[in-house]
C-alpha cells in the first residue's frame, strides 16, 4: 500500500476541516447566545455560490470571500429577525432558511453551471518546511484560510472563556434573565452573535467553493456539511478548542471515500462508503446527546428558547 497517499489523506482531512471549523464555530457563537440556527446548510450553499459569482466576475478571490461571508451574515439576519425579534419557532425558521437558501443558491447558480473558478485559493509553501516528510504536507502545506480558521477557533476560545463580552455571551445563552437584569439587551446580544455566526458560516461556504470544489455542483457542493457542523458543536461540547479536533476527525471521514477510491480499495462499494461521514456523525450524536450528557457537555441552558421579559 502506498504510504504517501495516507499522508495526503491526513493533509486533506485538515484541509476539509476548514469549512467544518468555520461553520461549526458560526453555529457555536449563535447557540452560545441561546439561538438555534438550523439553517447552516442553506447559508453555506448560498454563500458558496455568491463567492463563486463574485470571484468569477471580479477575478478576485478575496472579493469572493468577502461577498460570501456577507451573504452568510445577511441570511443569518433573516433568522435573527424571525427568532429574536418576532419570536418564531426557531426550528422551523432554520429549516425554512435551508429550503430558501437551497432554492436561492440553485437559482443564482444557473449561470455558473459547468464553469470552474479561474483562480482558486492556493496552499502556501514554507520552503523546506513544507518538504519535511509526513509533517510537511499536513502542517506546512495548507492554504491561508485553513490556518486562519484554526487561529479564529483559538481566539474564539480565549474570547469566550477569558473575556468580559465572552462571559456576557455565555450568560445570555444560559440565563438571559440575569443578563437582562444587569441592564444589557438580550435581544441585541442575540442578534449580534447570530449575525457574526452567519459571517463565519459564510466564510466557510466561500472557502469550500473557492479552495475545495472550484465548480458549482448545486446542492452537492455542500452535501450535508452544514448538518455535520451542527452535530460537531454538540460533539465539541460548545467549546472551540475541542471543535478543531472534532472537525479534523469528521474531515477524515469526509475524505476517506475518495482516498479509498484512489487506492482502489473497493471491497466496500463507493456509494456505501459515502455514508461514512453521516454514519459517524449519527453515532457520535446518539452517544453524546442524551439530555444528561448534553448538560454535562455544556449545552447553553436557554438554547432555542425566546427570551420574554414580562412573562413568568
Amino acid at each position: 500500500m502506498n504510504g504517501n497517499i495516507w499522508v495526503l489523506a491526513s493533509a486533506d482531512s485538515v484541509a476539509i476541516a476548514t469549512t467544518l471549523i468555520l461553520a461549526a464555530l458560526g453555529a457555536l457563537f449563535t447557540e452560545r447566545a441561546g439561538v438555534l440556527n438550523l439553517g447552516i446548510e442553506g447559508i453555506l450553499l448560498t454563500s458558496a455560490i455568491s463567492s463563486f459569482l463574485a470571484a468569477d466576475s471580479s477575478g478576485s478571490i478575496w472579493l469572493g470571500l468577502i461577498v460570501g461571508s456577507l451573504v452568510g451574515a445577511l441570511l443569518a439576519g433573516i433568522h435573527a429577525v424571525l427568532s429574536v425579534v418576532l419570536r418564531a419557532n426557531q426550528i422551523v425558521a432554520g429549516l425554512a432558511l435551508v429550503i430558501f437558501g437551497t432554492g436561492l443558491a440553485n437559482f443564482l447558480g444557473k449561470p455558473a453551471e459547468g464553469k470552474t473558478v479561474t483562480t482558486i485559493i492556493k496552499p502556501l509553501s514554507f520552503g523546506p518546511l513544507s518538504d519535511i516528510p509526513l509533517i510537511g504536507p499536513i502542517v506546512f502545506r495548507q492554504d491561508p484560510i485553513t490556518y486562519a480558521s484554526i487561529v479564529i477557533a483559538i481566539v474564539s476560545s480565549l474570547y469566550l472563556f477569558r473575556s468580559r463580552p465572552g462571559l456576557e455571551l455565555r450568560a445570555t445563552g444560559d440565563d438571559p434573565a440575569t443578563v437582562d437584569a444587569q441592564g444589557l439587551s438580550v435581544a441585541s446580544i442575540r442578534i449580534r452573535y447570530t449575525l457574526f455566526g452567519g459571517l463565519l458560516v459564510g466564510l466557510g461556504g466561500s472557502w469550500l467553493m473557492l479552495a475545495q470544489s472550484a465548480a458549482w455542483h448545486q446542492a452537492a457542493t455542500t452535501n450535508g456539511v452544514g448538518w455535520i457542523a451542527l452535530a460537531l458543536v454538540v460533539f465539541a461540547g460548545w467549546r472551540p478548542m475541542r471543535l478543531i479536533f472534532g472537525a479534523i476527525l469528521f474531515g477524515f471521514t469526509l475524505q476517506l471515500p475518495f482516498t479509498l477510491q484512489a487506492e482502489q480499495i473497493t471491497f466496500i462499494p463507493s456509494a456505501l462508503m459515502q455514508m461514512l461521514p453521516y454514519l459517524a456523525t449519527l453515532i457520535a450524536l446518539i452517544a453524546l446527546s442524551r439530555p444528561s450528557t448534553r448538560n454535562k457537555l455544556g449545552a447553553p441552558k436557554s438554547l432555542g428558547i425566546p427570551f420574554v421579559r414580562d412573562e413568568r
Binding site: L82, N89, V92, L95, V98, G103
Partner: peptide, 26 residues
C-alpha cells in the same frame, strides 16, 4: 427561467409565514 425559482418561493413563503405568525399571536 431557472426552475429553482419554485423551491426558492417555497422557502420564502415559509419565512414570511413564520414572521407573520408573530402578528397573529401578538
Amino acid at each position: 427561467t431557472p426552475i429553482h425559482i419554485g423551491v426558492m418561493l417555497q422557502g420564502a413563503i415559509l419565512l414570511f409565514a413564520l414572521g407573520g405568525e408573530a402578528f397573529r399571536r401578538y
